[in-house]
């Protein structure tokens, strides 16, 4: 439970962070809240040779509204999201997700940029970014969320790319998020997010495939006027769960369908 040795640097700007990443080479990593990276390092499953700690870059801590878009800086923590009045009005589903991420310690340190860059299918915000067609802004380019998540913990980010912000469309319609867990502080065994967007519904799935998933088949069914139950019956083609110590794939598929119905019903009742 002790990390392998590594070098450490704390840049003051994104440019400096990038040049440090170049200097340290391929095995260097950005560290933000450390809530995903440090556990992996302590198990020595990840042994970066250097950490570039971006916590000193103040400009990454902003939340800004820009007409129909809400831009959230990479270093905005879960707890900041929970407390942010603008987000509560413009993207309340994100606030609801933040309320249920890990425990207080995790929420006090973990960042949205870290969730996105880590690209974990179990990271609640990743499914949201995908289903709402968010944009991921880095020092180098803008990624469309739909092209961003490649495989287990693998994203389109390059080695010296620093996520600086995530841009979500302002989403004030009805919504609901259901996170099914064995324990209060657990990651989702399965998570289902639904958000009304104009006249249609967006659906996202957390921890039900190697990457976050959008509920395209369910969305299409809803668009063609299907009932919650009939639409949810389509969820099987949106996900690709595997069996693990938590549950069998068969159960996860069934659970997803049940949760999809319940989440749609809950959102419609808002």
């Amino acid at each position: 439970m002790i990390t392998a040795p590594f070098e450490y640097a704390r840049p003051g700007s994104v440019d400096e962070a990038q040049s440090l990443l170049t200097k340290f080479g391929d095995d260097a990593k950005v560290i933000a809240g450390g809530q995903s990276l440090i556990p992996l390092m302590r198990l020595r499953l990840s042994q970066p040779t250097a950490l570039v700690d971006i916590q000193g870059i103040g400009e990454l801590k902003q939340v800004r509204r820009d007409n129909g878009t809400i831009e959230i800086g990479a270093l905005v923590r879960h707890v900041d999201i929970q407390r942010n009045a603008v987000l509560r009005e413009t993207l309340p589903i994100l606030v609801e997700m933040a309320n249920d991420v890990g425990d207080n310690q995790v929420r006090n340190l973990g960042t949205i940029g870290g969730v996105i860059a880590h690209g974990d299918a179990a990271g609640d915000y990743n499914a949201l970014a995908l289903m709402l067609d968010a944009e991921i802004v880095t020092n180098k380019r803008r990624h469309q969320a739909r092209d961003f998540y490649r495989d287990i913990l693998t994203t389109a980010l390059e080695h010296d790319e620093v996520v600086t912000a995530v841009r979500f469309p302002v989403s004030t319609g009805r919504f609901a998020y259901t996170k099914f867990r064995r324990r209060l502080y657990d990651w989702a065994l399965a998570g289902v997010a639904v958000q009304e967007s104009g006249s249609s519904w967006r659906v996202g799935y957390v921890n039900l495939a190697r990457t976050p998933r959008r509920g395209s088949a369910v969305e299409a069914a809803l668009a063609s006027g299907a009932s919650a139950a009939d639409a949810a019956a389509q969820s099987g083609s949106d996900i690709d769960p595997t069996s693990d110590v938590r549950a069998t794939a068969e159960y996860k598929r069934h659970l997803t369908e049940v949760l999809t119905v319940r989440t749609l019903q809950k959102a419609a009742a808002v």
């Binding site: 198990l43 064995r182 324990r183 209060l184 502080y185 657990d186 990651w187 110590v245 938590r246």
Partner: peptide, 24 residues
């Protein structure tokens, strides 16, 4: 839990071994 073939422990961290909290 162990892998019944290899004898590897499958619940080797507190993420996979579920100790409940007060909330449960």
């Amino acid at each position: 839990l162990y892998d019944e073939e290899t004898g590897q422990m499958l619940t080797g961290t507190m993420v996979d071994y579920l100790i409940p909290t007060m909330a449960e």
